[in-house]
Design a protein around this nucleic acid. Sequence first.
DNA 1: ACAATAGTGTCTGTTAGACAATATTTT
DNA 2: AAAATATTGTCTAACAGACACTATTGT
Lengths: 233, 233
Amino acid sequence: MSSIAVMASVDIVALRLDLQAQRLQVLLHRREREPHLGQWALPGVIVNGRTPDNSLDAAAARALQEKAQVLPRHLEQVGTEGNAFRDPRGWSLSTYYLALLDPAQVLDGEQQAFFDLDDLSARKVVLPFDHALLIQRACERLAAKSLYSSLPLYLLPARFTVLEALTATQACLGRTVNNTSLRKRLERLKDAGWVGDTGERIQPRLGRPQQVYEHLPHANGPFLFERSLLPEG
Amino acid sequence: MSSIAVMASVDIVALRLDLQAQRLQVLLHRREREPHLGQWALPGVIVNGRTPDNSLDAAAARALQEKAQVLPRHLEQVGTEGNAFRDPRGWSLSTYYLALLDPAQVLDGEQQAFFDLDDLSARKVVLPFDHALLIQRACERLAAKSLYSSLPLYLLPARFTVLEALTATQACLGRTVNNTSLRKRLERLKDAGWVGDTGERIQPRLGRPQQVYEHLPHANGPFLFERSLLPEG
DNA sequence: ACAATAGTGTCTGTTAGACAATATTTT
DNA sequence: AAAATATTGTCTAACAGACACTATTGT
């Protein structure tokens, strides 16, 4: 068996929206073993016949649960990176998942923390293995789906305003989004029963109060729109 | 190493369009080793430190090349399936790819052949492991992308007609597609430099001759349209 | 001329985007 | 009343779909 086997892991790119800063943050975890012991890295677990998982998806859920006591709003497999160079111990595979968390998500202990995605992209924080690449790929998936789906709404709390939905979408896409377009999409989601109008109002410091929307229980997966958000111009 | 390692393979869902039957076919290969020796299954290779591949993508290309001497028009990773049950030998992973082949693709020898996708879906041919599931997932990916991209055109020969493009798109989607919409998409692809009008004509048995389009060299990946093809009604 | 097939033109509906107009609140 | 902010309405553009119309060929 050892001659035909390979090291395999599941790694999680778990994102949280910082509503004040209007930026995405990624959950990192201090490594508890060599190589790169003590460094900040993506939370992940080894998968093999001895671990208790019945499937990759179960291993992904376990990685989030064990390393960070986190239950995601959304979890999807993005891809698998495998080559001879990504791990100093030799040929290895990482199947990596995109997880979207509640913005109120808090973490226990000093072994896990959220880092601004921008700081990671700018290499202000350097990650071991190819974890920077895995984060980049997960974010590309998120941006691509945000053009034509309601995926960004999974980054919002149960009750949210139009402007918070706009903030989430813009953070996912990395660019501004037309206010009218997003409002119309929310209207369509309301008609489709995906979100509801609570009737509640939030009073900003000044001006007209904001309507408060809420997520409604529905089938799995985001709503798919027929058209993409377009580049401005 | 053996205690933390797992069996991993790359499997290829390679599709060819049968233009006459207007159906998709999948490339299968007779297994050369246990388990399921001699049965028709997806072509694939084991990945581990001893195989010569530097990456998963290289392993995928090698699987197609070694098992079937095939060079695909398009190759993309779809996902990874991993659990304790898919292989009788124990916990295993399969990273599976979607490959699109030239319809003129021919095969050497008795060890590989094309099977109609419909027959596989209808369980007229039963595949080992979870290969039926991998095929289903790959086809779902193809159908999803066919709604908003030029991916089906990779199933066509270098020179093709509008009706062949329609046939390819309908085979990918599993439903009829509006003729006018597809013609307009081809016009847009022509404007974008992805296809060209050869000026050549093909004379059907009766009636007006068909224009012949051709693929033009361009950046990797299919063209992305801004809107999806819609359900009929 | 007529049948058969390919291709074009026109109209409708939907929805993203731009932006003006209106509504609701605090100061 | 004025300022600030949120929300609504109106207009345009792009594009999928439906379908009528025209074009080109063989018999």
